[in-house]
Design a binder for these strands. Structure first.
Lengths: 141, 141
DNA sequence: CTATTTTGTTTGTACATACAAAATATAAAA
DNA sequence: TTTTATATTTTGTATGTACAAACAAAATAG
């Protein structure tokens, strides 16, 4: 039978890799007490205190509604603070999130090391760039 | 600030592309009345009548519990039938699903054409193969 | 041939994510 | 200055997906 779509279809292969690497990433991020997405969100907020939700949604390529939910959770954990500013909402780090910065960066490095050990450093880095490039082009459609 | 993880981290870039292409795929699959994942599941069942849920879960790289949910929905829509066989469950197509086969294959082609028009046929096909290869290797971990 | 283990499925629950519609707040126009 | 338009966020709701536990059937060991 013809099940070539299992390898030929970018929808399928991209989401498959997404599921696989999410699992690996969650393991590596366990010490942070956060899932990888929340960890990266915190890095952005720590690095750009006062960044708006709109900007965060764009950088992370999630919808504004999703971002609202993320910030709700981080706020509940006292990891960020909201400040309304005109029609935007700015997001600020807390002491607690600044303390987590190092742990998150370490988890991120561990994740990279883990998959690079399997896929090779060169090729996994190249793959990541190709993926970003592809999504940027498709988002323009 | 250092937000290089937005391009260097395979967790992030794979899932980003996954979100982007899922949206495109859902548009192209709209005429089938199914989301892409369900469409591909039906193609597998049509091509291998009596395939077990375990085999389907492996081919699609989702967990067995997820597959149960998928089959529940397709069964409710009269698009597949279950038949218990020992501790396994075999899944069979219905007339309705066989009628949909052509529509699904067309949607799949349209999806491929849509992203190939943006990314290039060669490079999008190569990317898809790289993605599958990467997930196969990471799933061995 | 019974007791234990393994394998496959289902169910309860939880989270990430999206879309559409509603709410909010500023900016622009009249 | 009141009205209208626009940008941002939030809320309601829905789907995909996972894990852990429960369950059922089969395989294996004693």
């Amino acid at each position: 039978m013809n099940d070539s779509f299992l390898r030929d279809c970018l929808f399928f292969t991209a989401n498959r890799l997404g599921r696989t690497i999410t699992k690996l990433a969650e393991e590596q991020f366990a010490p942070t007490g956060l899932t990888p997405m929340y960890g990266y969100l915190l890095l952005l907020v720590n690095g750009l205190p006062g960044i708006t939700q709109k900007e965060l949604a764009e950088k992370l390529s999630v919808t504004p509604s999703t971002l609202t939910r993320f910030v709700d959770k981080l706020e509940a954990k006292k990891l960020v603070e909201r400040q309304v500013s005109g029609k935007s909402v700015q997001v600020f780090p807390t002491d607690k999130s600044r303390e987590l910065e190092g742990t998150i960066r370490q988890a991120s490095r561990n994740l990279h090391d883990a998959y690079a050990a399997v896929l090779g450093t060169e090729s996994s880095d190249a793959l990541s760039i190709d993926l970003l490039q592809a999504s940027l082009e498709l988002e323009k459609m």
